[in-house]
């Protein structure tokens, strides 16, 4: 699979305001050096808890958030330095679907107006062409052309998320960030939307970055997975492999925490103590060491390197430094 997107050492640091008497200052590292490549036609899922930086990653790739440093190459072209005009042209190729289908649609615009806006801004289509495209797009996402004259409040949550998807796809993008696209929906509707996104992917040969906290959904939809913790990628790998043989202790704990809809399978659980520390003041060394059941003294002081441990798996954990050293 040729890479559509190459991300190298991407960082987003927010300066912290100095308090009245000089305390504070420093930076919050929302995204702290993430590298990954996403292949053409692939679904790469980013999972993590609140504050892990997964949403920041998605938005920084699209430059909806400006990166502090690092590189993002889309089809071999560096996009971090692009000016406003070039960026606008790029937006037709890179789009986003947001979590909240209630908050992300303008309540005063009809669905037709919402879908027309990207066509006007990006493609300058004639009114007639735009109208035809909007009607086709509504059908593609499982709505009808009658919906064009409706307002968001007249639609259900699932229908609104279909509109959100239509808005992202109407410029015929190649790459779409899906930011928790089904988290706000009921289970039966969630399955409808997941299936729709899969169908659209193969039909329109789309590449997805799927941001989610829900591992069951991720397991269903993605080809590869990256697990984030406090602004850093801690592990990546092909979906089935990563879930069956998680390497990083955090990934293991995350997987064992999922309640499964099968009372016969009540499993042994690794319950993590404590909470995710604040990115304003992350722990030294490995950021996970404060909650890690396998932490050793070096984890407290040395930041683990991001290393490739097999053909398609990488992990940032001291446990694997040593193993590879022993073998060599």
């Amino acid at each position: 699979m040729p890479a559509l997107l190459e991300i190298r050492d991407l960082k987003k640091h927010y300066p912290l305001r100095r308090r009245l008497f000089g305390r504070g200052g420093g930076t919050a590292k929302a995204l702290d050096g993430v590298s990954l490549s996403i292949g053409q036609g692939e679904t790469f899922a980013v999972v993590g808890e609140s504050g892990s930086g997964k949403t920041t990653l998605g938005k920084t790739i699209l430059r909806l958030i400006e990166p502090t440093s690092g590189s993002v190459q889309f089809e071999g072209r560096e996009i971090t330095g692009l000016g406003a005009n070039e960026l606008r042209r790029l937006r037709t190729d890179m789009q986003i679907v947001f979590q909240d289908p209630y908050g992300s649609l303008d309540p005063r615009w009809t669905i037709g107006q919402t879908l027309e806006e990207p066509l006007r801004t990006h493609l300058r289509l004639s009114d007639e062409d735009a109208k035809g495209r909007i009607e086709r797009m509504l059908e593609v996402v499982g709505l009808s052309k009658q919906h064009a004259s409706r307002y968001p409040h007249e639609l259900s949550g699932g229908q609104r998320q279909r509109v959100g998807i239509a808005r992202a796809l109407i410029t015929e993008p190649k790459f779409v960030v899906l930011d928790e696209p089904v988290s706000a929906l009921d289970v039966s509707i969630q399955a409808q939307i997941l299936k729709l996104m899969q169908e659209l992917q193969s039909r329109l040969s789309l590449t997805y970055l799927f941001v989610s906290h829900d591992l069951s959904v991720v397991r269903y939809i993605s080809d590869r997975v990256g697990v984030m913790y406090l602004g850093k990628m801690v592990e990546t790998g092909p979906t089935a492999e990563l879930f069956e043989r998680p390497l990083h202790p955090y990934t293991r704990a995350l997987i064992s925490a999922i309640p499964e809809a099968d009372p016969a399978k009540r499993r042994e659980r690794i319950t993590l103590s404590g909470e995710v520390p604040s990115p304003r003041n992350p722990p030294s060394g490995c950021a996970f060491h404060t909650r890690c059941p396998m932490a050793r003294p070096e984890c407290r002081s040395v930041i683990p390197e991001w290393r490739q441990v097999s053909e398609n798996r990488s992990v940032a954990c001291h446990l694997y430094n040593e193993e590879s050293r022993d073998e060599s």
Binding site: S188, I189, L194
Partner: peptide, 14 residues
């Protein structure tokens, strides 16, 4: 309609 975490069944019903 719930994606099962373990097991092989990849088919999701809605």
């Amino acid at each position: 309609s719930v994606p099962q975490f373990t097991g092989e069944g990849k088919e999701l019903h809605s």
